[in-house]
Amino acid sequence: MKLGLVVGVVWSTKKVREINWCRMYIVQPISTSGEEIDTPLVVADPKNLAACGDKVIYVTSTDASQAFESGFAPVNASIVELVDKIV
């Protein structure tokens, strides 16, 4: 899992059935102190947790499909937690 900042939304009406209801965001990976690292990536939000400007935790690769109720979705990254505070 990694920490990221939601910086954009991807709007799409035509999606495969497995992710039809799911929102897609652009997430910029950041360090806990807030510096940007790497390039932004597209992340699915199956639990409807995030909005633009939120700090989130996302999970990548095979485990990303596990964030969906069905466990079956063609996504490479999913948001799993909305961060309130880092101490």
Binding site: G8, V10, W11, S12, T13, K15, V16, A73, P74, V75
Partner: peptide, 24 residues
């Protein structure tokens, strides 16, 4: 992990057509 590509020997699939990308 889509209905179309289940059990096929593939490693890339088009999952959505993008209308717009909005950045803050």
């Amino acid at each position: 992990m889509t209905e179309t590509t289940k059990n096929s020997p593939i490693d890339a699939v088009i999952i959505a057509i993008i209308d717009n990308v909005q950045m803050t």
